[in-house]
């Protein structure tokens, strides 16, 4: 049984920096591995890093709510891989990504660390997160347009008296 509550997550004081980081971590988590590998390959001045936590795969129990808004319940688990790295300047990056791909978790952690480094953030955003984020938004929009093409208007036929 999990009794964890997370009061920290609602603290408004540091929300801006945390929100920015959450946004890039989300983009990295949703990226295809080969896109991250390509971005890493294209990167000049690759940083040295060491593992605080080598990539590993585990499970996260996915929860839902009764009726969508009610009591929480356990729906089922998903595979998740994670990794933590430290750059030479001491900045720690975390990767938490769905699936079993260790390389992806590691690259997500490295990019998370680099994006926290104000000297490198602009470069990594331009090379990695911005193009990925745009591609993800485009895919989402396409899914939505295809769904919209199947929208129907049901008409209630009024019977003759």
């Amino acid at each position: 049984m999990n009794m964890t509550t997370h009061p920290q997550s609602n603290e408004p004081a540091k929300s801006t920096a945390t929100d920015t980081r959450r946004a890039w971590m989300a983009v990295l988590a949703k990226a295809p591995t080969d896109a991250l590998v390509r971005a890493w390959g294209a990167m000049s001045g690759k940083p040295a890093y060491r593992h605080l936590r080598r990539p590993e795969t585990g499970l996260v129990m996915v929860r839902g709510r009764a009726g969508g808004t009610g009591q929480r319940f356990n729906l089922g688990e998903m595979t998740v891989s994670r990794c933590a790295v430290a750059l030479e300047n001491g900045i720690v990056g975390h990767g938490y990504v769905a699936g079993r791909d260790h390389r992806k978790a590691e690259l997500a952690a490295i990019f998370d660390a680099l994006l926290q480094d104000s000297d490198r953030r602009a470069e990594v955003e331009a090379l990695v997160t911005r193009p990925l984020s745009e591609a993800q938004a485009a895919r989402k929009a396409e899914r939505r347009r295809k769904a919209a093409a199947t929208r129907v208007e049901f008409l209630t036929m009024v019977r003759d008296r």
Binding site: H6, R22, A29, V62, L75, Y96, A98
Partner: peptide, 19 residues
């Protein structure tokens, strides 16, 4: 799907699932 790692203390998006 969002998960709060204890060491981070804020929700991290892991990816999306179809439901």
């Amino acid at each position: 799907v969002e998960f709060v790692p204890e060491e981070l203390g804020f929700p991290v998006e892991l990816g999306e699932v179809t439901v």
